[in-house]
Amino acid sequence: MYPIIKQIIRTGIVTEAAPLADEAMRLQPQRLQEEILRLLGSALCIRHVDAGSCNGCELEIHSVNNAHYNIEGLGIKFVASPRHADMLLVTGPVSRHMATALRRTYDATPEPKLVVAIGDCSRDGGIFCAGGAENYAILGGVAEVIPVDVLVTGCPPTPTAILQGILTAISRQASFSP
């Protein structure tokens, strides 16, 4: 026990300040009311869905749980079932084999729900069908299957960008000029 406590004390607190929301990541105007956002902002539950990624994006989703980014310290946690979730975090180009599972996961998530797409692949299929190339196994980006609120680009996006995307989705929209 003693070496564990000693190591914990020696490590100290490494958590860094969270990034600010970034309006540029928004694909859809904020749909949720302020009151709901306030509630979500203090206890947000996320369900992650890998819709066909290369696992690179998952590595960075793991990283947002590490002590440096400490997503749980912000009141945000990953949950085991979509039925407990307020938000879906979706990675990957959507493979045809995952389309049904993704749709069902979305349907199982109670309203109001938010969707944040993670990674270049989640935008348009990324390298797996870049340049509009037809790929028999891939449907394309996440928005081909379910509505997306916020998109975080990068291959893979950094943990800071992922955190920023999540925070953008639950932030009040700064100013909206259509």
């Binding site: 890998d50 493979s95 995952m98 190339a133 028999y136 196994a137 891939i138």
Partner: peptide, 14 residues
């Protein structure tokens, strides 16, 4: 398995 099948082998040919 096979859920994340992305047609990678075919994609290489393009």
């Amino acid at each position: 398995l096979g859920y994340t099948h992305k047609g990678i082998e075919k994609r290489f040919e393009q």
